[in-house]
Structure formats: C-alpha cells, structure tokens
C-alpha cells in the first residue's frame, strides 16, 4: 500500500545504519537552474555535500550543488493534480497569444 508520507520522511523512524538520505540538486553551468540529480546517504551536511560531489559531479557535470535532507522535501500529492495543476482552459489571458497589438517591431 502507498505510505501516507513520502518515503524518506524519517522523523518517526529510528536512525538508519546507512545514515540519513539527502536529495542532491546540481547546477550544470553558470546561469542554469539547479536540477534534481539523485540522492546520497550522509550523516551531516558537510559530508552530504562531499558525497554529492563525488557521486554526481566527478565528471565535471556541476558548478554548484545543493543538498537537502529528504525529510525536508514537501511534495504535492498525485490526488492534488486536479485542483493544483489543471490550467482550466478558461483563462487565456495568461498567454501572450490572447493579446492583439499593432505591429510595433520585435520588442513586444
């Protein structure tokens, strides 16, 4: 059965022999957003950063790394998908095509 908490929410569980789980986000190059790369186990933030670097950045794939305890991640639930995400196609004013303007050149 699907657990009610996201897996990794360990506050109610005993400490793992394998250390807590951390999520790793890496920035591929200057100006890019940080993207989820995967997870590592680590006892604390410093080791988490080092482990993340060794695991996800040893081929030079990152210029910056974020690590977050997995238990700190709050995720939307699939059940939310309707109210949370459905665009409700009755709001065209959110899209540029809705607006008719005289041709004034490329700036707009």
């Amino acid at each position: 059965m699907t657990p009610s908490n996201p897996p990794g929410l360990s506050s109610s569980q005993p400490a793992s022999d394998q250390w807590p789980l951390w999520e790793v986000f890496t920035q591929a190059k200057d100006g890019a957003p940080h993207e989820h790369a995967g997870s590592v186990h680590a006892p604390d933030a410093e080791i988490a950063l080092q482990n993340a670097r060794d695991t996800y950045a040893r081929r030079g794939e990152a210029v910056s790394i974020w690590v977050v305890p997995s238990s700190a991640i709050v995720a939307s639930s699939p059940e939310d998908a309707g109210p949370f995400f459905d665009p409700g196609n009755d709001k065209p004013y959110r899209h540029p095509q809705f607006y008719k303007i005289p041709r004034v050149g490329k700036e707009l």
Binding site: P3, P7, G8, Q13, D17, L21, S39, V40
Partner: peptide
C-alpha cells in the same frame, strides 16, 4: 539503491 528507497524501504 536510492531509487529503491523511494518505494519505502531503507537501504540498511
């Protein structure tokens, strides 16, 4: 292992 842990099991 990390992928497996998303299914609610600890690596230990």
């Amino acid at each position: 292992y990390c992928g497996t842990e998303t299914l609610g099991v600890d690596r230990a």
